[in-house]
Amino acid sequence: MALIEYRDALNQAFAEEIERDSNVVLMGEEVAQYDGAYKVTKGLWKQFGDKRVVDTPISEAAFIGMGIGASMLGLRPVIELMFWSFCTVAYDQIVNNAAQIRYMSGGLINCPIVIRGPANGGTNVGATHSHTPENWLANIPGLKVVSAATPYDAKGLMKTAIRDNDPVMFMENTLLYGEKGEVPEEEYLIPLGKADIKKEGKDVTLIAHGRAALTALKAAELLAAEHDIDAEVIDLRSIRPLDEETILASVRKTHRAVLVDENKPFCGVSAQIAAMLQEKVFDDLDAPVLRVTSLDAPAIYSPKVEPKQLPRPQDVIAKVLSIC
């Protein structure tokens, strides 16, 4: 297996899918000639040309709507948002057109698009650029929402997302683009709706997605080393569809759960999981389900302060120690 960066894993997924299916087209701001704002699409324009890798003006509503319209004729647009935060100016297209067109047409139409880009705080770019909209989008039946924590997951999930026949909202992370991980040389796919047990354990279940899964893993290491607590770490990978079975089986085994979530707490992804746990495994729980989320205020700019606003390993450890 090769050790490659998260951004390169995504890049491989795009290149392979562009080669595989003539209907796949990448579009977005700076994705072609500039090689991508984060170099995720580096080299693809040179390799595949103007038709398959398309620079757009800064017009998110138009180019996302255009991708949706083109998908109705059979194209498979993979559309980059330079920041997922910018989905706000294209929200009508995503929520009313991509998500609803199948339903409102009684199943006559489907919308095989991927909208992708980074959705994270922690880079000192202020509140407007630090949204984590996976919960806003997972709230909409008709959309699928995916979040990748590692290069391996990023590639396998992206390839599946491109082949999926429904609109998939793919959450990446600028803090992870440069992180390295092992990715097989041979082709592989990761299904949507399958969580990954990133670490097995028996004392408490840590449930997370995206970069928070890595935060949970770090916390689990420290819990084992310093507190003799064996935590299981579940990375959701796919938020909608959700792998309910894996989550419930883990909590039935450990009897305790702490949810780690870079969403804001109110109606965040972890709020949905918490509701599910109390409903479905109430009798298996030995302690309240606790959550570690981003602190409930707009993302602060101050570089020395912002890291405290996001879930940190020590925050997870503190919650775990309060119930173990």
Binding site: A61, A62, F63, I64, G65, M66, G67, I68, G69, A70, S71, M72, L73, G74, L75, D92, Q93, N96, N97, M104, S105
Partner: peptide
Amino acid sequence: GHGIVGGQTPLGLGLAYG
């Protein structure tokens, strides 16, 4: 058949793109 005023105009663009 689209309910949001103007919301169909990018879709029309997309049909032309397709």
